[in-house]
């Protein structure tokens, strides 16, 4: 945030002389250039969000063609809906565990890559494979890797004598959500690592050199120099990851469809089914709004943490 403010300050500091003379005239060209974007975002993002809020106050059902204003009724139903709260819990659990795992493993990879020079291009290229792969393909791929009967993972674990018999990874309520976390970690960690690597590379080598001369080992240099310098970027990356993880849809929908026994039902899949299987657009919109509110709360928490870490760094 402070970066934006600082850069904005730099812009206003030196206004060109002719701008002062023409301040009264509206400057059309920039507005015209921004107009297509404004129309696009306005019609596809802003309008539907407001439309969704309005819809959530109705009992719209496409099947029965009902469409009456019901006020807060959908939200009262939602507050007492065990399916909603169970999906809400699964989503938060998934978001917390996968974001944490991705940040920690990503940081580990980044620390390794920042030291390793030969063939780093190859490693970075390989790391973009999970990012570029369609999530639906990732789901199917993990469906095959973690297949309960012929999956490669079961075979490897059996060969290493880590498990006695096959595990029905995503077919059993105990392991299904964990399997989805693993798939998500595979897909997004490398990218997290590349982001953190870019951050690590901005830390001046002179700081690390100074720490070394003072007798700090690699471990101390990490905790005293690198981690504090990296904290804001780490938090920003984790925030984007958490907001994205919170919206998880593709992996769950394709791998388990929310099952078995609703053990992997998350807010996006529950909302999607309410909208397009039950055709309850009013209640579905209330679910989406509740999801929106939770996501805003997550963003706010991260925003506070990021602001704090930036302030600490400035001191």
């Amino acid at each position: 945030m402070s970066r934006v403010a600082a850069a904005g300050g730099a812009i206003t500091r030196a206004p060109p002389a002719f701008a002062i003379i023409r301040t009264r005239r509206i400057d059309w060209p920039p507005l015209l250039l921004l107009l297509p974007t404004a129309i696009s975002l306005g019609s596809v993002c802003v309008y539907p969000i407001l439309g969704g809020l309005w819809l959530s106050l109705h009992n719209t059902m496409l099947a029965t063609r009902e469409n009456r204003f019901v006020g807060w009724l959908n939200y009262r139903t939602l507050a007492a809906d065990p399916d909603f709260w169970s999906a809400w819990r699964h989503t938060l659990e998934f978001t917390a565990v996968s974001t944490l795992a991705e940040t920690v493993i990503g940081l580990g990879m980044a620390l390794l890559l920042v030291e390793w020079f030969h063939g780093r291009g190859l490693v970075r290229a390989a790391m973009l494979i999970p990012w570029a792969m369609p999530t639906v393909v990732t789901s199917k791929m993990f469906g095959w890797l973690f297949d309960g009967q012929n999956g490669l993972v079961n075979w490897m674990l059996r060969s290493l004598h880590l498990i006695g018999g096959n595990i029905d990874w995503y077919g059993s309520p105990n392991t299904a959500l964990g399997t989805i976390v693993i798939a998500d970690v595979w897909k997004t960690t490398p990218f997290m690592a590349l982001l953190l690597l870019a951050g690590l590379q901005t830390i001046p080598g002179s700081l690390l050199e100074a720490a070394r001369i003072d007798g700090a080992g690699a471990w101390q240099a990490f905790w005293r120099v690198r981690l504090p310098m990296l904290t804001p970027i780490l938090l920003i990356a984790a925030m984007f990851r958490a907001l994205d993880a919170f919206r998880i849809f593709d992996l769950v929908y394709v791998l388990t469809g929310g099952g078995p026994a609703d053990s992997t039902e998350v807010l996006s899949t529950l909302t999607y089914k309410t909208l397009f299987s039950a055709l309850e657009f009013g209640y579905g919109s209330a679910l989406a709004t509740a999801m929106f509110a939770t996501e805003a709360a997550i963003a706010l928490c991260f925003g506070i943490l990021i602001a704090q870490s930036l302030r600490r760094q400035e001191r």
Binding site: Y47, P48, S268, L275, F292
Partner: peptide, 13 residues
């Protein structure tokens, strides 16, 4: 940054 599921219903209509 908002959840895309929030716009899919109204956009569908």
């Amino acid at each position: 940054m908002f959840p895309q599921i929030a716009i899919v219903g109204p956009l569908y209509l």
